[in-house]
């Protein structure tokens, strides 16, 4: 039961990895090969391991994202309050489907798991800002402010 390289390093040494990945993703929009390799070197981990960690978490994008990330909740409370219509309105407004980035690079659009705003359903986040009690008609106004 000798700990592997991965495990041996895990004692505190690796503890900063997630915050470091978040920090990098926050500043650069996404995690590319260079930034992951850099962190791999810093934490004495193989690149595949850093890649494995990054791709596990929804907020650590590996592919380039738009300047702003729209995350619409697709879980039950929002679903019951017709999140589908809000999703339709964003699609129409930006001309992109969930999982895509607008051509001008301004917005990425994602459907996400519950964001804890069920009392204001349907809800979405743009970057870290929460928007609740959404209506399809109100979407254009919100997007215009970005």
């Amino acid at each position: 039961m000798v700990p592997s390289k991965k495990e041996a390093l895990s004692e505190n040494g690796r503890a900063g990895l997630l915050p470091a990945l978040k920090d990098r993703a926050g500043r650069e929009g996404s995690l590319n090969r260079e930034s992951m390799s850099g962190l791999a070197g810093q934490y004495h981990l193989p690149l595949n391991e850093v890649y494995g960690v990054s791709t596990f978490y929804a907020f650590l994008p590996v592919l380039p994202t738009g300047k702003n990330i729209i995350r619409v909740c697709r879980c039950l409370p929002c679903h019951l309050k017709d999140a589908q219509a809000v999703i339709g309105s964003i699609k129409k407004e930006l001309g992109i489907a969930p999982g895509e980035t607008s051509r001008d690079g301004k917005f990425s659009f994602e459907l996400v798991s519950c964001i804890g705003a069920c009392d204001q359903a349907p809800a979405m986040m743009i970057n870290d800002k929460l928007y609740g009690d959404l209506t399809p008609a109100g979407i254009a106004e919100i997007l215009k402010s970005y």
Binding site: C75, L76, P77, S113, C114, G116, A117, C118, D119
Partner: peptide, 8 residues
């Protein structure tokens, strides 16, 4: 880490 659907 309150992530359970419907929990806020």
């Amino acid at each position: 880490d309150e992530g359970e659907v419907g929990t806020f």
